[in-house]
Every structure is written in structure tokens, then in C-alpha cells.
Amino acid sequence: MVVFETDRLLVRDWTDADGDRVFDIYRRWEVARWLGAEPRVMADRGAASKVIEQWNERNRETPYGVWAVEERDTATVAGTVLLVPLPDPSDGSAGRGEVEVGWHFHPDAWGRGLATESARGAIEHGFKAGIGEIYAVVRPDNVASLAVCNRLGMRPIGRTKRWYDAELEAFLI
């Protein structure tokens, strides 16, 4: 199911046929190094099938999801865009239902503005659904993702360990 479209992209639910591409994206250290409190690469192709199942289960929680970003011209899955509730704060404070936009792309899709385009679409999708503000959280040395936040017009709000038990740069739109 297509969730939203942009000029160059279809953002949709994952299919079983996407498993090889998911594994190819998340088996790479240059992608995985930015993800999670303890980054690690995807171990095997079976893990890709499991994560697709988990993502599609999450995609039923409209307007939230973890979606495939497919290029219109080639039908190639370039990566992932997500719009999800942030986890309960790791700093012990009370959560306020914060929502995060994020992106993970295959290196062959880097440098073409696809992360910015898909994230902008996800933000618009969230705003149309009534979400009032959306965060992005980025590792401080992830220069490419910091640049995406700037291109999206997100306001930097400083470093925090509020989520994911890691020091991250937080942005808000």
C-alpha cells in the first residue's frame, strides 16, 4: 500500500520481495553505525524478513510507520523513512508523546536528496494527521543527517540523552 508520494518517490509498506534489499541496506556498517543505542549490522537475510514483518505490523498504527522509499523511475527501494512515537525517555522524565521522523538509505542512494524528499513527505503526512510537532534525533557526528535536518527547516534544540540512551542532537519542526 502506498502511504504517500513525492515527485520522485513512492513511500509504501514493505513486501516480502524487499527482503534482499533490506538486508543489503542494514548489513552495511556505514548505515548501521548511526542506528540504535548499540549499533550493529543485520546478521543475515532471515533477520530482514523478521524486521519487515515488525515494520508492517507497526504500519497499522496510522499515521505512524516504517516505510519503504521506492524510486518511481527505477522501482528500486532506496531506503527507509519512518514516522514513529519516540520511546519513553531514558532520562527518567515523563514522556509527552513525542514523534520522530527518521531515514536510513542505501549508500547507492546517498547524495541525491532522497532522504530529504522522503522525510519532508513523512512530516507532511504527520501534520495532515494532526501531529503538532515532529522531532529528529541524530548522532552528533552524522554530518549527512544533520544536513538533512537543516534542509528540512528543523530547529536545532541541542544535545540530549532523553531517548535511545545515547547522546543525540535533537531537532524540532
Score class of each variant (00 low, 15 high):
residue 86 L to M: 11
residue 88 D to S: 13
residue 128 K to V: 03
residue 114 L to A: 01
residue 21 R to M: 05
residue 51 V to G: 01
residue 66 V to I: 15
residue 78 A to Q: 06
residue 8 R to L: 04
residue 127 F to K: 14
residue 33 R to D: 08
residue 146 L to P: 03
residue 133 E to A: 13
residue 159 R to D: 10
residue 98 E to C: 01
residue 168 L to M: 09
residue 124 E to D: 13
residue 111 G to M: 11
residue 139 R to S: 11
residue 115 A to Y: 03
residue 146 L to N: 14
residue 147 A to E: 14
residue 66 V to K: 12
residue 171 F to A: 00
residue 77 V to C: 06
residue 143 V to D: 15
residue 48 A to F: 03
residue 164 Y to A: 04
residue 125 H to E: 00
residue 11 V to Q: 01
residue 68 A to Q: 05
residue 25 I to K: 05
residue 31 V to M: 12
residue 99 V to R: 02
residue 90 S to H: 10
residue 42 M to T: 09
residue 23 F to L: 13
residue 31 V to K: 10
residue 3 V to M: 09
residue 34 W to E: 13
residue 131 I to D: 02
residue 109 A to H: 09
residue 24 D to I: 06
residue 40 R to P: 06
residue 43 A to P: 01
residue 83 L to Q: 01
residue 88 D to G: 11
residue 160 T to I: 01
residue 45 R to D: 04
residue 98 E to G: 00
residue 102 G to K: 07
residue 91 D to K: 14
residue 138 V to F: 10
residue 152 L to Y: 10
residue 161 K to E: 07
residue 52 I to W: 03
residue 156 P to D: 10
residue 75 A to F: 10
residue 169 E to F: 08
residue 104 H to R: 09
residue 158 G to L: 08
residue 9 L to F: 03
residue 170 A to S: 08
residue 35 L to K: 14
residue 25 I to G: 02
residue 63 P to W: 08
residue 139 R to Y: 05
residue 141 D to A: 15
residue 14 W to N: 05
residue 109 A to L: 06
residue 90 S to E: 04
residue 87 P to G: 07
residue 57 E to L: 15
residue 49 S to Y: 13
residue 59 N to R: 14
residue 34 W to V: 06
residue 149 C to D: 09
residue 72 R to W: 04
residue 54 Q to M: 14
residue 151 R to Y: 12
residue 160 T to D: 01
residue 91 D to M: 08
residue 104 H to C: 03
residue 7 D to M: 11
residue 52 I to A: 04
residue 118 S to T: 05
residue 39 P to T: 12
residue 171 F to C: 07
residue 46 G to L: 12
residue 161 K to R: 14
residue 68 A to G: 08
residue 96 R to S: 00
residue 113 G to V: 08
residue 117 E to K: 09
